[in-house]
């Protein structure tokens, strides 16, 4: 038994992010470090960034096939492969980070997530939250639903679908050409992440309006684990790995809030001309309605989708009442 305890498990993890991708790069490293220390060196995790494996969006397939044992990514990237993975990152008008963690760990979210991932020989765990993402940079003001008509905006995924329903034109632009395209009005708007990532792209110099978020209220990243690999680990190492992932995710959530706060303050001081705007109520109402209609379509098409959406909906209805008289009431008291 003494010998068996010495066995070292070497795991490989693929990230969707390139090298040094700010706060996104932290959870995998913290998790690997924690797992190694907590297991007294019995778990060793090697991390490859997208610069090494060159396939940011191949992480799902590579972990599934066992080319990598683990991945760090975001669930909604796999929507084209497995539509129901969409719901485990963040949803327009959905839960905040805190509410969503509540749903994952105590509201049945984890069970539903495994139900989606297990058929593909995968396990998925929360991997850190960015908090509310900004609504994006706009060249023109949005004062009414009509202003969304024909709006050419780089906004991928489901949020793009919601906007398209109101007459906007989601547009594909390679990241390398975003700056020139926005500067030259080839597109009218784009969404990226938030102050932490947007500042270095320089969008504040070429677009006057920075809109607050509606479409990604709490973007949760994910740890993917190859199920067979995980099951081969001794029970204690499985628990250590799970704990390490959970702590790393928690840590990124805090760090994101911290960094966004610092970056936003710096940005405001350095570029006082950036105008922060929120969509008017009319636009928000229309977006909500479009969102609800689309989700109803999803639910009608797939039983598991309906189960997930119902679960999120009923959890949100309950927990939001508390958020309202707690967080919201408290924040309102400052106005």
């Amino acid at each position: 038994p003494a010998q068996a305890a010495e066995k070292v498990y070497k795991l490989k993890l693929a990230e969707t992010w390139p090298t040094n991708f700010g706060v996104f790069s932290e959870p995998a490293r913290r998790m690997a470090d924690l797992a190694n220390k907590m297991s007294n060196g019995r778990i060793e995790i090697r991390i490859d960034t997208a610069n090494k494996h060159k396939s940011a969006f191949g992480v799902f397939d590579m972990v599934r096939a066992g080319q990598y044992d683990m991945g760090h990514s975001a669930s909604y990237y796999w929507k084209g492969k497995v539509p129901n993975t969409l719901y485990f990152t963040t949803m327009p008008f959905g839960m905040t980070a805190t509410e969503q963690y509540g749903w994952f760990y105590y509201g049945g979210g984890m069970e539903l997530m495994q139900k989606v991932y297990e058929p593909f020989n995968l396990l998925s765990f929360p991997g850190g939250n960015t908090g509310v993402q900004m609504g994006g940079w706009f060249q023109k003001e949005i004062n009414s639903v009509d202003d969304l008509q024909g709006l050419k905006m780089r906004i991928p995924g489901f949020a793009g679908e919601v906007l398209a329903k109101l007459g906007a034109n989601p547009t594909n632009i390679p990241p390398g050409e975003l700056y020139t395209s926005l500067e030259r009005n080839t597109i009218d708007a784009l969404e990226w992440v938030g102050p932490s990532m947007d500042l270095r792209m320089g969008f504040h110099k070429i677009a006057p309006y920075y809109y607050t978020g509606w479409h990604e209220p709490g973007t949760e990243l994910q740890f993917l684990v190859n199920k067979r690999t995980f099951e081969k680990l001794p029970g204690d190492l499985q628990e250590i790995l799970k704990a390490a992932m959970r702590v790393a995710a928690y840590d990124m959530t805090i760090k994101s809030h911290h960094e966004s706060g610092e970056n936003w303050a710096a940005m405001k001081a350095e570029f006082p001309n950036v105008q922060v705007k929120s969509f008017p109520d009319e636009v928000i109402r229309a977006l909500r309605q479009a969102n609800d209609e689309l989700l109803a379509e999803h639910a009608a098409q797939d039983e598991l989708a309906k189960e997930i959406l119902d679960s999120q909906d009923s959890y949100l209805k309950t927990v939001r009442q508390w958020t309202d008289i707690a967080d919201r009431a408290y924040l309102n008291s400052f106005e």
């Binding site: 599934r64 084209g80 492969k81 398209a164 989601p170």
Partner: peptide
């Protein structure tokens, strides 16, 4: 071959609206 076959088995499509 495996790469394409897995995509076929998943029925993979674009993740973007109208893709």
């Amino acid at each position: 071959v495996d790469f394409a076959r897995e995509s076929f088995e998943l029925g993979e499509s674009s993740g973007d609206p109208g893709g």
